[in-house]
Write a protein that binds this DNA or RNA. Structure first.
Length: 472
RNA sequence: CGGGGAUUGGCGCAAUUGGUAGCGCGUCCCGCUCGGGGCGGGAAGGCUACGAGUUCGAAUCUCGUAUCCCCGACCA
């Protein structure tokens, strides 16, 4: 047994391991500009799979895609006080254009609320023109101090949905719909379990009334905010003085919401689903679901045809590169996380079968050609379920219900993970907990029950258990 | 923005008290191989990130600049 490793160890140094996977699986590479990355074709294919799935959900909801410019006039951002305060430290600003200094500086969008609502205002004057349901797939720029491929890059790709409704309940319906769509994307496509909830006042989006989130737990016990869905209330409408006539002819401010899911999702996917042999892709997002490796030097063309006939509807690839040995290919595709590999040689052809290797359990089995289709379909489903259940179990095993602050501190200084604890909802208490333990409130889970409790930190009365964790 | 590390053929690294740059992988050619990163032979490829300085002599020492990575505070 060859024990040579081609990828660094996950348990030994998760940061280096993560970068190693990203580079060796050819998902992305460092760009010449600090904090930026090149998403390579294999990584981009994962993003496309996410786009296709989520875009369908978005369209089913009646939201339409559009595109707004990446340049935003500087004064747009200044209109909403909390918004500008939240984003100003991380803005990239264009000061020159066409060889001349610009009269008004342009911001590279960190998010598009302001430019989109400016246009919405122009397009509407009556309740009859509501709701506005628009989404865009685009890039945004946030000048983060510390970057990390996929998880936190200076420029990243996402979709941002921005809707405006006549009433708050309608807007809230959209907010919760988006949260649910994201949860579906994570659960069904990326095989990632997580907790949906609402952010605390200090953790919410700059300018939002309420921010909803989906938090997923990483292998090192840190929490990743996997998406956002914001109830913006009427804050931006008021900032832009945007009113429409309601049914009684009176002017009213529309209710807005915004929601986004970014390429960070791929970072979460890599972190959770991979091991010391490389990436492990859930079949539903895998650009290649089945890799076929014919043993080099053997005449297998007609037998290969028999096999591919059984794979209709699947994303498969035959690796017929003559310059690589079979063993090399096995390792290569394992690093790239392809869920199923079929090894095919004369041995298999004679028996009318294939050797099937599944990436998640690393087990090999022999499958007869007669039931190859059904067997692969079954195994792909099984891998998808297996990965999700594994992450669900990991998250649950590492979610601690805690009532003493000593225990809280002990967990955060050792294994980390999610902590479910009562909190009085006083921001100073929250800040103190963060200073002591690095843990912040991740969210108040959607399904949290009202209970009689006392704050884990200050002992004052508290009504709900919040989810705490260290942010990635 | 603070702390640490790094920068040497395409990639990953080495070079002892300062002495004139070497190895692995990859690439190209030839032959044998091919069921878990095969083997032999041959070849190409570097004013050692940039700029000063010290020295008979600098990849190595000093100062400066730039970029990247990691760890913290901020964030999708």
């Amino acid at each position: 047994m060859d024990t040579k490793k081609f990828v660094l160890s996950k348990s030994k140094d998760i940061a280096s391991w993560y970068n190693d996977i990203v580079l060796k699986a050819e998902l992305a590479d460092y760009a010449p500009v600090k904090g930026c990355m090149v998403i390579r074709p294999y990584g981009y294919a994962i993003w496309e799979a996410i786009q296709i799935y989520l875009d369908q959900l978005i369209k089913n909801k009646g939201v339409k895609n559009a595109y707004f410019p990446m340049f935003i006039p500087e004064d747009f951002l200044n209109k909403e006080k909390e918004h500008v305060k939240g984003f100003s430290p991380e803005l990239a600003v264009v000061t020159h254009g066409g060889g001349q200094k610009l009269k008004e500086k342009l911001i590279l969008r960190p998010t598009s609320e302001t430019v989109m609502y400016y246009m919405y205002q122009k397009w509407t004057n009556s309740w009859r023109q509501l709701p506005i349901l628009i989404n865009q797939w685009c890039n945004v720029v946030r000048w983060e101090k510390r970057t990390y491929m996929f998880l936190r890059t200076t420029e990243f790709l996402w979709q941002e949905g921005h809707c405006a409704h006549l009433t708050h309940p309608e807007s809230m319906d959209q907010v919760l719909w988006a949260l649910d769509a994201y949860q579906k994307t994570y659960n069904n496509l990326l095989a990632l379990y997580g907790i949906a909830g609402v952010k605390s006042e200090s953790e919410k989006f700059a300018g939002a009334g309420k921010s909803y989130t989906f938090e997923i737990l990483m292998p090192n016990g840190k929490a990743l905010q996997a998406c956002t869905s914001h109830d913006l209330g009427q804050n931006f409408a008021k900032a832009f003085d945007w009113t429409v006539a309601d049914k009684d002819g009176k002017n009213t401010y529309p209710w807005q919401n915004s929601w986004g899911l970014s390429t960070r999702s791929i970072g979460g996917l890599i972190m959770v689903q991979s091991d010391d042999d490389g990436l492990i892709l859930p079949p539903n997002v895998a650009p290649i679901q089945v890799i076929i490796v014919p043993i080099p030097g053997q005449k297998l063309d007609s037998y290969l045809k028999n096999i591919t006939d059984k794979l209709v509807g699947l994303r498969y690839l035959i690796d017929q590169d003559e310059n690589e040995t079979a063993g090399f290919k096995f390792n290569k595709w394992e690093i790239k996380g392809v869920p199923i590999r079929l090894e095919i040689g004369q041995k298999e052809a004679n028996q009318n079968q294939v050797t099937l290797y599944r990436r998640d359990t690393k087990q090999k089995q022999t499958v007869s050609l007669d039931n190859l289709s059904s067997e692969i379909e079954k195994i792909l489903k099984d891998i998808q379920t297996n990965l999700f259940e594994k992450h669900k179990k990991f998250t649950q095993d590492n979610t601690h219900t805690v009532d003493s602050y000593d225990q809280f501190k002990k967990i955060m200084s050792t294994t980390k993970g999610f902590i479910s604890a009562f909190w009085c909802q006083d921001p100073t208490c929250e800040a103190q907990i963060k200073a002591d333990t690095k843990a912040t409130t991740r969210c108040l889970p959607i399904d949290a029950k009202k209970e009689n409790g006392v704050c884990v930190h200050c002992g004052k009365t508290a009504s709900h258990r919040w989810l705490f964790g260290q942010s990635y």
